[in-house]
Every structure is written in C-alpha cells, then in structure tokens.
Amino acid sequence: MHIGILTLTFFMPGCGSLKEKRQRMGGLHQRFGRNPAVAVCESGERDRLDTSEWSFVVAAKSQREAESLCSEIEDKLQRTVDGRVSDVSREFL
C-alpha cells in the first residue's frame, strides 16, 4: 500500500466573505470524496478570506498509481476552482 499526500494552497483575490470562499471552492468534498481511495479536507487558512488550503490523502497499490491520482486531482483543481493555485506540495509514504 502506498500513500500520497497532496496539499494545495489557493489564492482567491477579491473574495469578500467566508461564504463566498466556500462557494468558490465548489464542493471539493463531494467531487473527490466519492472515490474510496481519496480522503479530502480543508487543512488550513480556514479564517482567511483570500486563501484556502486543501489536503488530499490518496491510497493506491503502487507509488505510480498514487502519483497518477495526485496528478489527476491537481489538474482537475487547476481547471475547476475559481482561484489560483499558489502552492503545491506532495509527499509519498
């Protein structure tokens, strides 16, 4: 079993409230939480209006599969979130 931890920080200029911030992030729990190999949570910057940090924990049979799934998640987030990715970190256990 291989575990990957993908953490992304998003910058959302012009975000005026926590409610707007949640709407702009667009239901990441619902989209990625359906996959039994992925756990997702808002891991930081919860009280800042213009920044949001999310972590994804991926479980896979091989490190290559874990890396592939992390890449898929990152690519999808880059296209769908109403904000700019300002930092990405990956760790594999």
Rank of each mutant, 00 (worst) to 15 (best):
C15N: 10
Q23E: 14
D75S: 13
A39V: 10
G14L: 12
E74T: 03
A37Y: 13
R48C: 07
E53I: 05
F10K: 03
M25R: 10
V58F: 05
F92N: 07
S68A: 13
L18F: 05
E74S: 10
A66W: 05
A59R: 15
L49Y: 03
D75A: 15
G16P: 08
T9F: 00
L18A: 07
E65P: 04
L77D: 05
R22I: 02
E45T: 07
D87H: 13
S71D: 09
A66P: 05
S68D: 11
G44P: 09
S17C: 11
V58G: 05
R24E: 00
A39W: 01
R22K: 13
C15H: 01
Q30W: 04
G26M: 09
V57R: 04
L93P: 15
L69S: 03
T7G: 04
C15T: 14
F32E: 06
H29K: 15
R24L: 08
T9H: 02
L28H: 10
R24I: 07
E45P: 08
T51D: 04
Q63S: 14
W54N: 09
Q78M: 03
M1W: 08
Q78Y: 02
S52Y: 00
R79H: 13
V40K: 04
D87C: 08
A39D: 09
Q30G: 12
P36Q: 07
R79S: 14
